[in-house]
Amino acid sequence: MTEYKLVVVGAGGVGKSALTIQLIQNHFVDEYDPTIEDSYRKQVVIDGETCLLDILDTAGQEEYSAMRDQYMRTGEGFLCVFAINNTKSFEDIHHYREQIKRVKDSEDVPMVLVGNKCDLPSRTVDTKQAQDLARSYGIPFIETSAKTRQGVDDAFYTLVREIRKHKEKMSKDGKKKKKKSKTKCVIM
């Protein structure tokens, strides 16, 4: 069974824990209790493949930012979460993405942009803004509501699919490099 290491990042209060708990335990946590770091595991079937999701729910508070490099190193894919009623959390996505790329030393890291709290009427981040940002990053965008469960499975499952595509691409690139290195030079 394939294991996928997913990391949920975003500013404090955007609903990272609520999304994760909704996926794992099928219930909505409405009281806000700032996370330092929590880890969850769940076995699911995605596109006919049974897999184990190892999900790291991270601290959004700035005082825990020193811990970010460590979990970013171990993560295979990242859910970059903002709240649709919090423009600052949307603007912060850029910083999370840049930090992930720096730590992973790669421009090509599996990510999904997630606009959470889409059940709320007080939207300050337009869907088109988020779609445009995701398009500019070359990553999928999904709106979710941890409260109603809308888009929750889709967000995590899409990230797994992005990781699969990335692994497939990397193995193809690896095979191309191996083929090239088999060419021999004969000096007579």
Rank of each mutant, 00 (worst) to 15 (best):
48 G>D: 11
9 V>Q: 05
33 D>S: 11
30 D>C: 11
49 E>G: 11
60 G>N: 10
54 D>H: 05
3 E>V: 08
34 P>C: 06
40 Y>K: 03
40 Y>F: 12
18 A>M: 05
13 G>E: 15
41 R>M: 10
44 V>Y: 05
3 E>I: 05
20 T>R: 03
9 V>D: 06
49 E>T: 11
47 D>M: 04
53 L>T: 10
31 E>N: 09
8 V>M: 11
64 Y>D: 14
58 T>A: 10
34 P>G: 02
21 I>Q: 13
55 I>T: 13
13 G>Q: 13
62 E>D: 14
37 E>L: 00
62 E>L: 15
12 G>A: 06
44 V>F: 06
34 P>Q: 03
28 F>N: 01
22 Q>S: 11
34 P>H: 02
18 A>R: 05
31 E>S: 06
11 A>I: 11
4 Y>S: 10
33 D>G: 06
48 G>F: 05
21 I>S: 14
51 C>N: 09
26 N>P: 01
55 I>N: 10
43 Q>K: 08
9 V>S: 06
34 P>W: 02
42 K>F: 07
24 I>W: 12
24 I>C: 13
24 I>N: 13
6 L>M: 13
26 N>Q: 12
58 T>R: 03
6 L>H: 02
17 S>R: 01
9 V>N: 03
17 S>P: 00
11 A>D: 13
64 Y>V: 15
27 H>D: 08
2 T>I: 08
60 G>V: 09
61 Q>W: 15
18 A>K: 10
5 K>D: 13
41 R>W: 05
49 E>R: 11
55 I>F: 06
45 V>M: 09
13 G>S: 11
11 A>R: 06
47 D>Y: 06
48 G>Y: 08
49 E>D: 11
50 T>K: 05
28 F>L: 03
54 D>G: 03
21 I>Y: 14
31 E>H: 05
59 A>L: 15
41 R>C: 08
61 Q>M: 14
28 F>I: 04
27 H>Y: 15
56 L>P: 02
41 R>A: 08
25 Q>V: 04
44 V>K: 03
49 E>A: 10
43 Q>R: 09
6 L>V: 12
43 Q>D: 04
40 Y>Q: 06
51 C>Q: 05
32 Y>S: 03
21 I>K: 15
60 G>S: 06
61 Q>G: 15
52 L>S: 11
8 V>G: 04
57 D>H: 02
35 T>I: 01
3 E>L: 08
